[in-house]
Design a protein around this nucleic acid. Structure first.
Lengths: 151, 151
DNA sequence: CGTGAAGCGGATAGAGTATAACGTCTTTCA
DNA sequence: TGAAAGACGTTATACTCTATCCGCTTCACG
């Protein structure tokens, strides 16, 4: 597995935002850092909790605003079926991703499968539908957990 | 378009439940009827509102229990990206469906596309993942709204 | 009959998710 | 320097969903 260290992801985000002329402020960066370090999906209030290091008072809109920005920039993804957010594993290029979500251990795998993207595209175009956003999440059991259960 | 009248869907549900030995009680039937008649996704509280015809006091668990049952029986689907529910257009056989959701007019189209199902299956099996539930929702603009906007 | 188990539903409370609205401060740029 | 846009703080509140407890009906079985 090519799991990047969180620092690398953050530096990549810095570069991308600079190139795009958008501002990865300290707060937005902190949210991204928390998500990347977690290595699992976090709910908005979990992020909020993690941001309150010392005793700073922080309210929900703070975290949702940061998440909106990061989502727009493709730096994080939202998992609709979990109401949770994950750092994107390859934010450098625009892409449609799919997620495999293990209901047992919580592991989330981000795919970038051409065949799925193509079949979605062709199904949509058959009816003249113009896709903007794709939500593809498969909930089940990962190989590791399946092995434990059946062996 | 082969849109069934709500009564037909309800009768089909009656038959299915009887065959399966589960009880489509008056309350569950009412929720299904409301969803089928709406012809658009409804939130749980919208359903709740619709159930309070006269002045009967009704609480959220009532609706969620009915929805749980209907979801299990495949009589309704949940749209994760909308936090809303729709009546299933072909409950007679088990299937994985995909949804095209128009962000402009709210139209939701349920697909049952073999190619998408197959590509999802093969992507999952490559990593040894065992799928249980699939969430496939494409948000965009339907043909009708796209036509209005560009012409 | 009686009785016990199971399923359904009423009711209260509360956890978790998300946004509206308004004000202030900062950054940018002409 | 001044105006506009953007980012953030703050309060309040709406919306989504679940836990829990209790009572009622149904039904099988003795």
């Amino acid at each position: 597995m090519d799991v990047k260290p969180p620092e690398a992801a953050l530096e990549e985000a810095d570069t991308l935002c600079q190139r795009r002329g958008v501002r990865l402020t300290a707060q937005r960066r902190q949210v991204l850092q928390i998500l990347c370090a977690a290595r699992r999906p976090l709910g908005a209030y979990e992020i909020l909790e993690a941001m309150r290091d010392g005793s700073r008072p922080l309210a929900p809109p703070t975290v949702y605003r940061a998440l909106d920005f990061l989502l727009e920039q493709g730096l994080v993804h939202k998992l609709e079926s979990l109401h949770a957010y994950v750092g994107c594993t390859h934010p450098d290029h625009p892409h449609f991703s799919q997620f495999l979500i293990c209901a047992d251990c919580g592991l989330v795998t981000e795919l970038e499968d051409e065949a799925i993207a193509a079949s979605l595209k062709s199904a949509a175009s058959e009816t003249g539908f113009r896709p903007r956003r794709r939500v593809v999440e498969v909930i089940g059991t990962c190989a590791n957990c399946a092995g434990k259960a059946t062996d």
